[in-house]
């Protein structure tokens, strides 16, 4: 969902037919921005405020303490495994759906979206049912001394599930909007499949790809519900950062909980900054390279959690 936000409202503001009376405008501005401040800005600010309430020393100690560091490492590891896997899937699925015609395409697209509509808690439950001690593969796993649930593989699986559609959903509409002309031209000019993908398709979707990766990374590092079911929350071993925050919070160690939370909040802010930058790059890329302005409308609005 790379949105092409133009920050120019002048075409509406200068036009008599598209502007409201000043009091309407100011009421709308006040109401919506107050709502925005109350629900988005205040929580964000309070995270950092609470984190530093007891001073920098406590803050630094909380995030460099052994179990905190272990949680950070695990979180990075999880993202490092699950994001590339979903990236490969997303590219394959988008190539399939955008560049080929086959029956059952609509069904497949719906299936790809499915993980968005499953509650994270249920995701955790599902993997318990498949890999848990009493699950389908439970006995087999015990026999071979393998642990999925209450171990890192379970956390990875749950994370893959919740971030499953991100890259695919980003790429599919983008590739569809670009059509197949350029790829067909490449093939007529003698390029083989990989050459076509590498030299023609990929350069055209790189911003969308990056966008999907950033969003799925944010979600992978921040996932709570699904991971909390399958992790077992063993400190220093299967505790991710969000789970660590929960444990500290439940122990009434608020300063430490908010300190670790502030790292996640920073991650969110960095994500938003990169995302905004990508949108900017993508839209200038889009404006510079798109020859038929009418095609702009083929990008349908899409929103993902």
């Amino acid at each position: 969902m790379i949105s092409r936000t133009s920050h120019r409202s002048t075409r509406f503001e200068r036009n008599l037919a598209t502007r409201e009376a000043p009091w309407v405008k100011w009421t709308l501005l006040t109401l919506s921005l107050s709502f925005f401040a109350l629900f988005l800005i205040l929580p964000l600010v309070s995270v950092f405020f609470e984190a530093l309430r007891k001073g920098w020393e406590v803050y630094l100690l909380s995030i460099t303490e052994e179990t905190a560091l272990a949680a950070i490492k695990l979180t990075v590891l999880i993202a490092f495994i699950s994001v590339p896997l979903n990236l490969v899937f997303g590219v394959a699925a988008a190539w399939l759906i955008a560049k080929h015609d086959f029956r059952g395409k609509q069904l497949l697209t719906t299936f790809i979206d499915l993980p968005f509509s499953v509650s994270p808690v249920i995701v955790g439950l599902m993997y318990m049912l498949v890999f848990g001690a009493n699950g389908w593969f439970g006995a087999w796993l015990v026999e071979h001394d393998l642990k999925v649930i209450f171990a890192v593989p379970g956390i990875v699986l749950a994370t893959i599930f919740v971030t499953f559609p991100f890259v695919a959903r980003e790429l599919i509409p983008l590739m569809q909007a670009q059509g197949r002309d350029e790829e067909e031209a490449a093939v007529v000019l003698g390029a083989n499949g990989w050459q076509t993908f590498w030299y023609v398709t990929l350069p055209n979707v790189k911003w969308g790809l990056l966008y999907g990766v950033i969003l799925s990374n944010a979600r992978a590092m921040g996932e709570f519900g699904a991971v909390s079911v399958v992790s077992g929350k063993i400190r220093g071993q299967t505790n991710t950062m969000p789970l660590h925050v929960e444990i500290l919070y439940n122990e009434y160690n608020f300063a430490a909980a908010f300190a670790v939370a502030s790292l996640l909040a920073l991650l969110a802010l960095v994500t938003l900054v990169i995302k905004t930058w990508v949108e900017h790059r993508a839209s200038s890329h889009f404006n510079a390279t798109h020859m038929v302005p009418a095609d702009v409308n083929t990008l349908s609005p899409r929103v993902m959690p």
């Binding site: 925005f36 988005l40 800005i41 205040l42 929580p43 964000l44 309070s46 995270v47 609470e50 969003l215 944010a218 979600r219 590092m221 921040g222 996932e223 709570f224 519900g225 950062m241 969000p242 789970l243 925050v245 929960e246 919070y249 608020f254 909980a257 908010f258 939370a261 996640l264 909040a265 991650l267 969110a268 802010l269 994500t271 938003l272 900054v273 995302k275 905004t276 993902m304 959690p305």
Partner: peptide, 21 residues
Amino acid sequence: ALVDLPFALPTAVAGIALTAL
């Protein structure tokens, strides 16, 4: 840019922040 914060902010962080507020 910040409208997307709830997409990017881990839910646990949002939870404890809202509770504190």
